[in-house]
Design a protein around this nucleic acid. Structure first.
Length: 700
RNA sequence: AGUAGAAUAGCUCAGUAGGUAAGAGCAGCGAACUCAUAAUUCGUUGGCCGUAGGUUCAAAUCCUGCUUCUACUACCA
């Protein structure tokens, strides 16, 4: 969309799922870039709403609530507050932080569904699903476990066996068990409503094709889906937690969370302008003041063609924001579609994937306790290392280095030296001496180029680049001071010194404006030190922001050095987490039921030697082994390829169960099973005799 | 396993309508300076542009294979 046709902006940030607090990955990938973008637009005087909220439905919420022994509502209440507070603390400037469990949302999502239903958009399908009679609910695939028909793993999930990697349907499992009650589930017929994406594929095709300017990863991901052909997708679920399906005979059914969540953006916008909202609700939604928008109708932000809609998300939600949500909006008619979807990649932490369940994360609410008032440091580091084009790694050492050698040394130091000099020589007054020199004018010229340079980078969603340009202003200031050397001139040419400090102060004043989208707390502090009134982007570039005789306040340090000790403490904390995880995982499994001696002696386990080994084509984990068992030479297929290369194990002695019924795996008849010891982290080891023993020896 | 994206200096990243000798910041090294949180400024060392081929007068850039990482496919948000 061309900028001159844009009248207003609707900016959304992915709704965080409310089953845990938010961490640095969320911040770096979604909320900081979105916030920079919005703060910049506001500073440009644009009409913009910035929308977010808690995504509070779905199966994992109900399970987590059960685990904690509280109701789903209590669970989402708890995390809504934690997450909302974190965003507030970090200066993520949402106009509203709404929630999908709200009345407004239930009504909006329900109406939306009903509208599509009445238009005959959905198809109905009756399928058989596993049902847990004890828990009285249908089971998602992931919550059914059983024995894998391919490899015999007893803990395969309903959708996949993690041992042999095969894709399963829940009905494939032998002895299925509900992970809710532990009882065997029964099959029950159930009806669900499907969005026939296949029927509107051509519309989606042309929508995506009209956005070749999207990031390669986003565009590519969409093309990949379209290439494969869109499938009909169920938009309802058999569950009691969520937005009730608003039609007859749909008891016990709710909207699929990915149907209801994006509608949450719309519900939030409605409540943003809802004048009837109580004060309590306003607090709950982090809606303190009326938004500075030109319109007070939510429709303008969702239905007018001159509104630019931008979704900030992580790469895992691309399909929902670029295909499914647009498909829903197209089917409903009357809504605008996203103009940009700047999806970021993922942030890793100290080399490992961030994981809520493994507690491998830097949680925002914990960070602020350990680094009080250092929101901007984290904002800076996460912007500088944002995973804009590929996954990136956050390390505490890098965090420290960027604070100490960039924020402290370049930005903080420049501001500090200017202010200290001004107070030392001129009692903190803005003064002017001899006329500007050629050098001064060149500095002003360069200064003038920054607002548009930074603005263009932000508007192109290149926040790393924008940030580094902002830092170049501080660099410019440091260099100017070093070249002009006012401390040397003061005794001989005080008039020149006055001018030099004037120029330097104007640079600092510009910094206060241009740093604001990235470092709002710092910009604010700097503004106070300079006693600047609220200035906007349009003022930046000027060389007269501070007028003569203007009194500056006492300088304070903008950033403090972060010592190695604090960093080591953080690293230690992570190492402790790692250890705790290993301990938790290595907790010894329960003993199985007793067997009698006959059952034991029925097992024929022998010592054998691997003669040949080769990878089974098209599999990740399987090796085809030829084993000399002493009795014969036979073929065994074993799922060990992730830990052993074929060359490395030829000649290895192993224990082999030789009287296991043969089974065909990937078209190869496997006659027996190699005994493996499995480590807590899943690593496998051969169970073999310490010394070479003749093949065929019995193990008993 | 398929589909898509990615791989450039120790670290974080720029760099494609193919074209002079591959760039920046940080770290490292050397020097200057002292207003400043030993911060700053100047200079400088680092790259077979993942790997093997191909197209071309010319390839980091285009094509193919391979390796590694990631997401999605996977009614799990």
């Amino acid at each position: 969309m061309k900028n001159d046709t844009v009248k207003r902006y609707t900016v959304t940030a992915a709704l965080p799922y409310t089953n845990g607090p938010v961490h640095i990955g969320h911040l770096a990938g979604v909320y900081i870039p979105a916030d920079i973008y919005v703060r910049y637009l506001r500073s440009m005087g644009k009409d913009v709403v910035f929308i977010c909220g808690s995504d509070e439905h779905g199966v994992p919420i109900t399970l987590k609530a059960k685990k904690e022994g509280i109701s789903p509502q209590q669970l989402v209440d708890k995390y809504h507050k934690i997450i909302g507070d974190s965003f507030l603390d970090f200066g993520i400037s949402f106009n509203i932080y709404h929630r999908t469990s709200s009345e407004t949302h239930h009504q909006t999502a329900s109406d939306f569904f009903k509208d599509l239903y009445d238009k005959g958009v959905f198809t109905e399908e009756e399928t058989e699903q596993y049902f847990d009679e004890k828990a009285n609910q249908f089971l998602a695939d992931r919550y059914i476990t059983g024995t894998c028909p391919n490899c015999g793993n007893e803990n395969a999930y309903g959708d996949q066996c993690e041992k042999c990697g095969s894709t399963l349907n829940p009905t494939d499992l032998i002895n299925p068990k509900s992970s809710l009650s532990g009882e065997p589930p029964v099959l029950r017929k159930t009806k669900n409503w499907f969005l026939p994406l296949d029927k509107i594929q051509s519309q989606i095709d042309s929508y995506i094709d009209s956005h070749k300017e999207w990031k390669p990863s986003v565009f590519g991901q969409c093309k990949s889906w379209l290439h494969a052909g869109l499938q009909s997708r169920a938009m309802t679920r058999d569950l009691d937690w969520g937005v009730k399906v608003p039609i007859e005979n749909a008891e016990g059914k709710v909207l699929y969370v990915w149907f209801d969540a994006p509608i949450g953006y719309i519900s939030a916008t409605k409540d943003l302008f809802n004048v009837q909202l109580s004060e309590a609700k306003k607090r709950e939604y982090y809606l303190d003041v009326a938004p500075k928008t030109k319109s007070s109708h939510w429709e303008d932000y969702w239905q007018k063609g001159d509104t630019k809609l931008v979704h900030f998300i992580g790469k895992d939600n691309i399909v929902f924001h670029c295909i499914i949500f647009p498909a829903m909006l197209m089917a409903h008619k009357g809504f605008i579609l996203a103009d940009q979807v700047p999806a970021n990649e993922f942030l890793n932490l100290e080399g490992d994937k961030i994981s809520t369940s493994r507690n491998w994360a830097v949680w925002l609410h914990e960070y602020l306790k350990e680094f009080p008032n250092k929101q901007d440091v984290l904002r800076y580091v996460l912007t500088a290392t944002a995973p804009e084009t590929k996954d990136n790694d956050f390390t505490w050492k890098d965090f420290q280095a960027r604070n100490n050698s960039e924020l402290v040394a370049i930005f903080g130091n420049f501001v500090n030296r200017v202010l200290v000099l001004s107070h030392k020589y001129f009692d903190g007054k803005v003064v002017m001496g001899s006329a500007f020199t050629k050098t001064d004018l060149q500095v002003f010229d360069e200064l003038k180029s920054y607002p548009s340079k930074i603005g263009e980078a932000i508007e192109s969603y290149r926040f790393r680049e924008a940030l580094s340009e902002m830092m170049n202003i501080a660099r410019l200031g440091n260099k100017y001071l070093a070249d002009a050397e006012p401390w040397k001139l003061f005794n001989t040419d005080a008039e020149r010194v006055k001018t030099v400090l004037n120029v330097s102060l104007q640079i600092a004043a510009n910094l206060a404006i241009l740093a604001a989208p990235f470092l709002p707390f710092t910009a604010d502090k700097l503004g106070k030190m300079l006693d600047l009134n609220h200035l906007e982007w349009g003022d930046a570039g000027r060389s007269d922001l501070l007028s003569l005789q203007h009194q500056l306040n006492k300088p304070e340090l903008l950033f403090d050095k972060i010592e190695g000790l604090a960093i080591e403490a953080q690293i230690k904390k992570l190492m402790d987490t790692k250890e705790a995880n290993q301990l938790a995982q290595s907790s010894v499994k329960e003993v199985k039921a007793n067997i009698n001696y006959d059952q034991f002696s029925a097992l024929d386990i022998r010592v054998g030697t691997i003669l040949e080994a080769e990878k089974v084509a098209k599999t990740k984990k399987l090796l085809k082994l030829t084993i000399d068992t002493g009795i014969d030479q036979r073929t065994v297929v074993s799922g060990i390829a992730e830990y052993f290369t074929p060359e490395a194990i030829v000649g290895q002695q192993v224990s082999i169960l030789v009287n296991l019924e043969p089974r065909e795996i990937k078209g190869i008849l496997s006659q027996g099973m190699i005994l493996m010891a499995e480590n807590s982290d899943g690593k496998l080891n051969f169970v073999s005799p310490k010394e070479i023993i003749s093949n065929g020896s019995m193990i008993a």
